[in-house]
Design a protein around this nucleic acid. Structure first.
Length: 827
RNA sequence: GCCUCGGUGGCGGAAUUGGUAUACGCGUCAGACUUAAAAUCUGAUGGUCCUAGACCUUGUGGGUUCGAGUCCCACCCGAGGCACCA
């Protein structure tokens, strides 16, 4: 067949314009009717970087767009909004470097993105667009802060916080990766500062249990659980002695209280308050305080990487093992963390690797409590099967297995009042203050005494001043704004000052999916009716890098707002999947420095947006990482070219009478309808496209021997199957088939085709015949005989090849109806 | 160290509940068209044995089964996350 060239540039520009003129997918939220069957599809809104759209954006956007178009054609009311996570460091850093104001950079970047997204045919509802840096949006971010504040869930805390010396700002725990800043990789230091926190720990248990309600990838749930880090153990009180006199007690948290008879020393973190409190009883205080000093100057990373565990004995005070009354020495060491558990541990060097390293380095006794293990066995091994290990050197508990001993010891400790069950979490409250400019100002003002007060609601949005020196100095840039200070004094009185910090941008993104439905509503953060009708989000497509940040924070916001009566659901994202990463042709992560970046604009120029879309969908499963294959893109272009030629060959033709080849094509087409209809909701876009290719292959093969012309409604159906994947070409072909220039009705408004099972049914089936587990032959069976076991067996036995393999035996036959026939010659 | 996900042709990948392994695409080879090349079209394409036919093949080794890419056990390799969390 001679390919009629298809002009992707003309087609794509034309239909993009037409769809926009007809506002095809717009205004969904404002034109809905009560009782509409909503499907809320959410794309993780992106930071509008100056680089513009990259191929990774195209992948997830296209996947969602396919779902949107498919479901609209299936009669669903689809809500598919778009927005911008527009506050953030890059625009600010750029401003520091060039002096161009972030407002301008951001506006330009958004315009670029908009143009590019429209070009690839994403059917967003642009009427619901939001940008977090817009006062109309951050007014409500601030309002939400005040809601948290009113309920005591936004509070000012004093303490050690993570500080990035390069970004010149504090960071949340979630933004520290391996002791380094997740943005710039600088080593994070600790700094004592007064900062604002959100009390996410209030919801720690529900953040765990809520995961049972959602359809998320299991590994993602695991990772969140890991981050929350619930651990169940016991808290034990050790009496603290100075000489023979008890002067207090030390509480430790342990998950291995059953090894307490093996405790040969105690360790507390350098920050532990006990040290300062009992300073006078410590005879080597000078040395101890020197150690504390040294430890506090180290970063977390430095503490972790120092293998030979440092520490110093605290002389003058000691502890008593509450079970044995034995005196145990106390050490300060920085391998014990101040902010986990009680900041103090009982060290059992025979069953804990870290304690053992410390004991070895400081020549401390090691005492095993596990029978038959005089040297070392880690508690994690014991924990795996407690009943398999027996206690020894453990007083009256010796001889019991750990299961029983553990229970008895805790019971006795409880009875005597020095121990109880205890649960610990790794999750910390969320630090939201940032000493940066380009974010939403924290709506707090301070009176002349320095006491914080909420900004009055009528003063929202609490706008970001513009007369600001961006240069990071460690002080918040807003400090340099005269207008900001003047505003506060004017509104609140002389001597009052604003809070100069802005909010972490993750605060902005924790609630944007609630805003979309009420994007232009100036009276409330979200219209309750919209929330009720459209939320929760039905399907969320988001990169795996957001698991412990955005997804956890959003769940926290949702639960809080539910408790305030604004929401009626517990979890914001019912179903969620991650897109994989698109790698460079070399199989490595795309980066400018490696020179392996694929620019989507170039692909669009050369092959068109439809080709770009279907190539990315065809690369492999949406959730896995896939390398770019430059020549495979051309293969997708060929497919569209051939598709174009095939459909054009049908336009204006009369369907041929039931020619056998026509029957073959029609059968294939109806099978393809079934396959594509099942694959799209399962997100198997690669196999759906493979099916479309097979269908075209069949058509071309059949067309070679005789001219095949399909009934018009089947040609339409064929184009409809292509519509979600290659919307431009499909529209072009559809309009050619319809040939009704007077009125425009889009293909994307038409009803999804239905397969006719009669037409899809095969007449003949090939049944493989196995002999002793190996396929030896295949026999053709007519459809009406397929379930007739005796007939199939008889057929198979008549086959000469089968005969040869079962010769001289009495095989037992097993027929798996319609699938396979298996002979076994073994007795 | 702990948690999780993977390992199928030269490459990306496909394979309902265990039931024809390698669909579809790329690449490669051959042919048609062309003065020639590109583009396009046609055919072949997991490996071994000269061919027929057979044997081998889903990271490795075992097991269950009439039948295993799929289930079970042990191990090897790769990716991601967490990590002095007591």
């Amino acid at each position: 067949m001679q390919a009629v060239p298809y002009d992707h540039i003309d087609i794509e520009e034309r239909w993009q314009k037409t769809w926009e003129q007809h506002a095809l997918f717009q205004n969904m939220a404002t034109t809905n009717q009560p009782g509409d069957d909503w499907l809320y599809l959410l794309f993780a809104f992106a930071y509008p970087s100056g680089q513009g759209l990259h191929v990774g954006h195209v992948e997830s956007k296209t996947a969602l767009d396919i779902l949107a178009r498919f479901n609209r054609m299936r009669g669903k009311k689809v809500f598919f909004p778009v927005g911008w996570d527009a506050f953030g460091l890059p625009a600010e850093n750029y401003a520091v470097k060039t002096g161009v104001h972030p407002v301008e950079t951001t506006r330009n970047a958004i315009n670029t993105f908009r143009r590019q997204i429209k070009r690839i045919g994403i059917s967003y509802d642009w009427e619901a667009e939001v940008a977090t840096s817009h006062p109309g949006y951050y007014k409500w971010t601030q309002w939400l802060f005040l809601e948290f504040y009113k309920k005591g869930l936004a509070y000012q805390g004093n303490g050690m916080v993570n500080w990035c010396p390069s970004c010149q700002t504090v960071l949340a725990n979630e933004q520290v990766v391996n002791g380094a800043c997740e943005r710039c990789d600088s080593e994070v230091t600790q700094k004592n500062m007064k900062q604002w926190f959100f009390k996410i720990t209030e919801y720690k248990d529900e953040l765990i249990s809520g995961l049972d309600q959602v359809d998320w990838p299991e590994p993602t749930k695991q990772q969140q659980l890991n981050w929350i880090g619930k651990s169940e153990g016991a808290s034990i009180l050790f009496p603290l002695h100075s000489g023979d006199k008890q002067i207090g007690e030390l509480e430790v948290y342990t998950t291995a209280h059953d090894t307490i008879f093996g405790c040969t020393f105690m360790v507390i973190a350098p920050e532990h308050e006990l040290l300062a409190r009992h300073k006078s009883a410590i005879s080597n205080w000078e040395a101890v305080s020197r150690y504390i000093e040294k430890a506090s100057s180290k970063t977390d990373l430095q503490r972790q990487t120092n293998k030979e565990k440092s520490g110093i004995e605290v002389v003058g005070i000691s502890l008593r093992n509450p079970f044995t009354q034995e005196s145990v020495p106390l050490f300060v060491a920085d391998y014990v963390l101040a902010n986990y558990g009680t900041g103090a541990i009982m060290a059992v060097p025979a069953h804990d690797e870290r304690d053992r390293e410390f004991a070895t380095a400081h020549k401390l006794p090691i005492r095993s409590v596990v029978e038959g293990n005089p040297d070392f066995i880690s508690y994690s091994k014991i924990k795996a099967q407690r009943s398999a290990f027996k206690l020894t050197s453990s007083g009256k508990y010796s001889g019991l297995d750990f299961e029983v001993g553990r229970r008895d010891m805790l019971q006795d400790a409880k009875l005597q009042g020095f121990g109880k069950k205890s649960t610990q979490y790794k999750l910390r409250d969320w630090l939201i203050s940032r000493q940066r400019y380009w974010g939403a100002p924290i709506p707090i003002v301070y009176d002349p005494e320095g006491k914080p007060h909420p900004v009055k609601e009528e003063h929202l949005p609490w706008t970001l001043p513009t007369d600001v020196d961006f240069k990071p100095t460690g002080e918040s840039p807003l400090t340099s704004s005269k207008a900001f200070k003047a505003r506060v004094e004017k509104l609140y009185g002389k001597g009052w000052r604003p809070e100069y910090d802005t909010m972490d941008t993750f605060v902005d993104s924790s609630w944007y999916y609630l805003r979309y439905g009420s994007a232009r509503d100036e009276s409330q953060f979200a219209d309750p009716t919209k929330l009720k009708e459209m939320l929760p989000v039905d399907f969320y497509m988001i990169g795996p890098e957001h698991i412990v940040l955005h997804l956890l924070y959003s769940r926290f916001f949702t639960k809080f707002l539910r408790d305030q009566g604004y929401l009626k659901f517990d979890e914001p994202f019912t179903k969620m999947r991650h897109q994989g990463m698109i790698l460079g042709p070399d199989g490595k992560k795309m980066s400018k420095s490696k020179g392996n970046v694929i620019n989507p604009d170039e692909i669009i120029e050369k092959f068109g947006a439809d080709t770009l879309r279907i190539y990315e969908m065809f690369m492999g499963p949406i959730e896995s990482d896939k390398p770019w294959d430059v020549s495979a893109v051309a293969g997708m272009y060929r497919f569209l070219q051939r598709m174009h030629a095939a459909i054009l060959s049908q336009v204006g033709e009369q369907a041929t009478n039931a020619h056998p080849e026509q029957q073959v094509v029609r059968r294939k087409l109806h099978q393809t309808i079934t396959k594509v209809t099942a694959d799209i909701p399962a997100l198997k876009f690669n196999t759906a496209l493979a099916a479309l290719m097979e269908c075209l292959n069949q058509f071309e093969r059949s067309s070679r021997s005789s001219s095949v012309v399909l009934p018009k409604e089947e040609v339409v159906a064929w184009v409809q199957l292509l519509a979600p994947f290659a919307p431009f070409l499909a529209e072009e072909l559809y309009q050619k088939i319809q040939n009704s220039p007077s009125q425009f009705i889009s293909l994307h408004q038409s009803d999804w085709p239905q397969a006719d099972p009669k037409l899809a049914a095969e007449e003949q089936f090939e049944i493989p015949i196995q002999v002793d587990g190996k396929v030896r032959a295949r026999v053709q069976i007519a459809a009406d005989k397929l379930l007739d076991e005796a007939f199939v067996i008889e057929r198979a036995q008549a086959d000469p090849v089968v005969q040869r393999w079962i010769l001289g035996s009495k095989p037992t036959a097993r027929y798996i109806s319609g699938k396979i026939l298996s002979f076994s010659t073994q007795v």
